[in-house]
Nucleic acid binder design. Structure first.
Lengths: 325, 325
DNA sequence: CTGAAAGCGCTTACAG
DNA sequence: CTGAAAGCGCTTACAG
């Protein structure tokens, strides 16, 4: 199918060894400049491109980093993270490939790709991690859950996000908290811990349990939730994320409830639309750039043989205060 | 590093040939059930997983489909497309891998991955396409531009999107059109044709040239654009996409201009936040599901040896009318 | 019904 | 300074 190094060798009148030495710039060899040029020219002329597959088989590894996303709708936050990660790793000659958590099982994928490193933005099964490590693949993980602290993985605490939302609302003098989740089943992994954090926040502040509502991203669905909160005397809503929070704003508007006078609303993520909402939405931002840089750093450290994670980044969570609270 | 088929053969007391036949269910072989079980058990017991790299070298191809995204911020629209594509292709045993157009050059990537098919959501250089095809890789492309019709690629007309925006605004009795672009350089490939379409629409309707403003996704920046439009007597704004349109709504609000009474606004994409905006945003939707299904179909057809694209999908563009127009 | 052998394209000790 | 040879792990004609 393709031009091989043997073809180049023949065209240049040398052995494949020499071709390999020249093309890879192998140090410690002393190839005459004339030979070098002959090989380079021949390769150029006959359009040679080395087979990455054969090289991978021989070397036992590739220069690929496989990023595995969770099986849910990713947002602009993750896009930004991926961009930064790709830029940072390119500097080390690594290419980033993304798997969206859809389609065939992960186990087939990493075997097919044999990446140098797998970066998980989702939790992996422990046996999956073992299998990957056994195959010589570095695994850099982030966890959805901060319940069990595993020092080999980096994770932003989803619970803490929920606690921060409540703390901010309490600071604003609110006393009856509602929580807005989503009907999207795929989000349950993230939503669970965040709600848990909201519960913890309420408990810490001596407030009653949050009034939980799950809604679709429509004004109708949100209006219904708004009625439930209203009946329960809710004066502040913590939303699973900004998209849900925007729906909450629409629902409250529809019900004639004023934000923040009647009900305060806070989201998570700080997506662009949040600053543009009516009223502009308060939210918890996650410093994606910092997290991406950290993941890149951890990946590179693992490459260099580090067995421990680099020191974790400084605080990446912050409340962005706007007019909705 | 790994368990090989030779290990399985040894453990089961058979040859590697037999192991391969059993594990791949090669048809036309007649392996005794006892032997089969022995091989299966041995493989299971010693934790054998075939090397996809070696298989790829031997077979000359993989079961991977590489999707190459353009070098710009992807939105929920593309996420949805990728999800559908992954689902549809998984049914054919293909895994989808995504490259975000960042980091190392594409040419290195496809060589390293040796996918069966490369699906481009961005335009490729012609020589790149030739190189991929020479390496035995199917190339399914979409084009950003509908200027030159190449029957081997599928593309939604970006110009037509702009024309549809204007046609709708004209239908609503608007006569002075503004266009809202973005300051994000990366979007110029898409934005150019859409603006061109808006220009065509204005010309067709006998209106003056659109008043073009480029803005960042902030209320401040949008407010400034709103002032410019106001001075020019603009009574309707076509935005590059919904995110920009949301900024436009915020800017007009800030300037005390009412939507749609004073100025009508229409976006592109129909992202979830659009239906939740104040007022709910009219937009042009792109039927991403239909497009994803078409791409999957084209990919599979190419796999089956088709040399032409399947018949293009029915109309995928539609105006979603809400309260902003 | 099962095995020995070749070969996919590369890299790298090892000789010369 | 350069080449012949082995080997990465697999699949598949070809023998038996």
């Amino acid at each position: 199918m393709g031009v091989t190094s043997a073809d180049v060798a023949r065209a240049a009148g040398v052995s494949r060894t020499t071709v390999s030495y020249v093309l890879n710039g192998t140090p410690g060899t002393a190839i005459s400049e004339a030979t070098r040029q002959r090989v380079l020219d021949a390769a150029e002329r006959i359009g040679y491109a080395p087979s990455a597959t054969a090289r991978a088989l021989r070397r036992g590894t590739t220069d690929l980093v496989l990023v595995v996303l969770p099986h849910w709708p990713i947002g602009p936050v993750i896009d930004t993270l991926l961009d930064h990660l790709a830029d940072d790793l390119a500097a080390r000659g690594l290419s980033v490939l993304v798997h969206h958590g859809r389609g065939r099982p992960l186990s087939e994928l990493w075997r097919a790709v044999t990446p140098r490193t797998v970066v998980g933005l989702t939790a992996f099964a422990p046996e999956e991690v073992r299998a990957m490590r056994r195959a010589g693949i570095q695994v850099v993980g982030t966890r959805l859950d901060d319940e069990h602290h595993d020092p080999s993985v980096y994770a932003v605490s989803q619970r803490r996000i929920g606690r921060m939302q409540v703390a901010h609302l309490v600071e604003r003098g609110r006393t009856r908290i509602g929580w807005a989740g989503t009907t999207d089943e795929r989000l349950v992994d993230f939503a669970g811990p965040r709600l848990e954090g909201v519960r913890q926040g309420c408990a810490t502040a001596g407030l009653a349990e949050p009034v939980v509502a799950r809604l679709a991203l429509t004004a109708d669905s949100a209006a219904q939730a708004a009625r439930e909160w209203h009946e329960a005397g809710v004066d502040a809503v913590a939303a699973y994320n900004d998209e849900v929070a925007l729906a909450v704003l629409a629902g409250l508007r529809r019900e004639g409830l004023r934000v923040p006078e009647g009900v305060a609303v806070i989201g998570v993520d700080d997506i662009p639309a949040s600053a543009l909402a009516e009223p502009p939405l308060s939210t918890v931002s996650q410093s994606i750039e910092v997290q991406a840089a950290y993941l890149a750093q951890a990946t590179i450290a693992a490459l260099d043989g580090a067995t421990e994670l680099p020191p974790q980044p400084p605080d990446v969570l912050a409340v962005v205060v706007r007019e909705s609270t």
